[in-house]
């Protein structure tokens, strides 16, 4: 599997580490109830088909990208950079 990186181009999956489901939002630290925390920490959808997820190019530029990957074919359907440096990178 090749994962696109906005700095480094298409790179092999072995250069990346998987950082999990990108659809999960961290709850508001002050306001969230235990149920929301449970969902955030433990519950994942594991869909068959397109899945938004985070990968870090830690064998390269260390950027964390959010990609949409088809979990059946491993086709990468979209990619965008995350974080404070994302401006001007990715789609």
């Amino acid at each position: 599997m090749l994962i696109p990186c906005p700095h480094c181009g298409d790179r092999d999956v072995s250069e990346y580490s998987y950082l999990g489901d990108a659809t999960i939002k961290r709850p508001n630290q002050e306001k969230a109830n235990p149920h929301k925390w449970e969902t955030f920490v433990y519950n994942r959808q594991n869909p068959r088909g397109p899945h938004k997820e985070l990968w870090q190019h830690n064998g390269g530029c260390r950027l964390i990208v959010e990609i949409t990957r088809d979990t059946i074919s491993h086709e990468i359907l979209s990619m965008k950079a995350t974080g404070p440096h994302k401006t001007g990178l990715g789609k």
Binding site: S17, L19, A22, R26, L54, Q56, N58, R62, L63, I64, T82, G83, P84
Partner: peptide, 11 residues
Amino acid sequence: LEHMELYLSVH
């Protein structure tokens, strides 16, 4: 390092 980078980039 990876753990902290995730928080800074995403959360």
